[in-house]
């Protein structure tokens, strides 16, 4: 039900924009099975549990939340690296959730992913050149070897790597440089949409700014659209145009970054933002923290009623009885899913 309300309002307000990706009622449940010989399903981890949003061409949408809230699963389900349990993913007008085989492979040229850990996502036995050119081989672009190498060298230059290192292996590079290799690989097929799954959280502080600046430059140059998945809320404010806050597989708040950060509506967003430390002792002394007690409930057994009711400081009767508060537009383009607010 929530998705329908959201769908209606979100579509209406963004009717004029060029929508590149449209996610409706997306669910991804991972089965929990029991038994050694005769396996049967005894439950499901509801990693993503009915989310809907649109991404406008050229924007950066941030997806934030704590570990286990389903943000990475969302990114992977959009790209069909996981097949959705339910719901629809429309990319550039085409439905991906029912697509398979060669059709889907062709779509992958238009959408790519940058992974979190640059140490685990690059094959240690392949040279930089072969890592970056593998997508080109798969899609049969540049059958001429020489042209392909020239293109790979161009890509390396574009992401700030010296093309001289084309025959080196990943272990010869630092973390920041490896992430640049991952970015070059993602750009190889000239995609229009990139899912960046925590691209900077494994990097040192002084290197993070380098990679973020590079991503912003590339976005301007190539008119890229990003889905930026992160738990670093300060960086999300810097790089994103809009932000969606997830909690236990659902979007609890969605809106333009400044609106959400300056005027958070959902009690979870308020607590999350107040918990982020600011590198300024003057500000820290005067800040009022909202400390929410307890831990994230298990997504296999979510609470009845609103998902956040076990930790919510302002929960009342309705929050325990009525499931799924709908995502409602409370301010222009600013959606919240909370019984208190709506």
């Amino acid at each position: 039900m929530s998705s329908q309300v959201m769908e209606h309002t979100a579509r209406k307000s963004q009717a004029d924009d060029d929508i590149i990706l449209s996610v409706t009622g997306l669910k991804k449940h991972f089965p929990i099975s029991s038994g050694i010989v005769f396996q049967r399903q005894v439950g499901a981890v509801r990693a993503v549990d009915g989310i809907s949003f649109d991404v406008v061409r050229g924007e950066t949408l941030g997806l934030v939340g704590e570990s286990g809230c389903g943000k990475s699963t969302t990114g992977r389900t959009i790209l069909q690296l996981y097949r959705p349990t339910e719901g629809s993913v429309k990319f550039e007008g085409q439905e991906l959730s029912t697509m398979a085989g060669n059709d889907l492979r062709q779509m992958r040229r238009r959408m790519q992913i940058i992974f979190q850990d640059p140490f685990a996502s690059l094959n240690p036995r392949m040279t930089v050149g072969s890592i970056v050119s593998e997508p080109l081989q798969i899609h049969n672009i540049y059958s001429n070897k020489k042209e392909r190498q020239q293109y790979v060298e161009q890509l390396m230059e574009k992401v700030g790597l010296n093309p001289y290192f084309i025959n080196r292996y990943p272990h010869e590079f630092s973390g920041g440089q490896r992430q640049r290799i991952g970015i070059a690989r993602a750009l190889a097929l000239e995609p229009s949409f990139i899912v960046a799954d925590e691209p900077i959280s494994a990097l040192d502080v002084s290197i993070q700014a380098q990679v973020v600046n590079l991503m912003e430059e590339l976005q301007d140059e190539l008119n890229l659209t990003y889905l930026f998945i992160a738990h670093d809320l300060s960086m999300v404010r810097h790089i994103c145009d809009r932000v969606a806050v997830m909690y236990l597989g659902k979007i609890v708040e969605l809106g333009p970054v400044d609106a959400v950060y300056d005027n958070p509506q959902h009690p979870y967003t308020q607590a999350l933002l107040s918990a982020v430390p600011v590198p300024d002792p003057g500000v820290e002394e005067s800040r009022q923290r909202i400390i929410i007690s307890g831990d994230l409930p298990s997504p296999a057994t979510p609470p009845t009623g609103c998902n956040f009711n076990t930790r919510c400081p302002v929960a009342f009767d309705l929050c325990y009885q009525e499931p799924d508060p709908p995502l409602v537009e409370v301010l222009p383009n600013h959606f919240v899913s909370c019984h208190r607010v709506t």
């Binding site: 920041g176 440089q177 600011v278």
Partner: peptide, 25 residues
């Protein structure tokens, strides 16, 4: 100075580019 400049702030909208420290550790 470089380290503080390369950090985005939660309490201000991030329009300006982050200053980056070149090179690696």
């Amino acid at each position: 100075v470089g380290l503080l400049g390369s950090l985005p702030r939660l309490d201000s909208s991030g329009e300006e580019k982050l200053t980056q420290i070149e090179g690696s550790p």
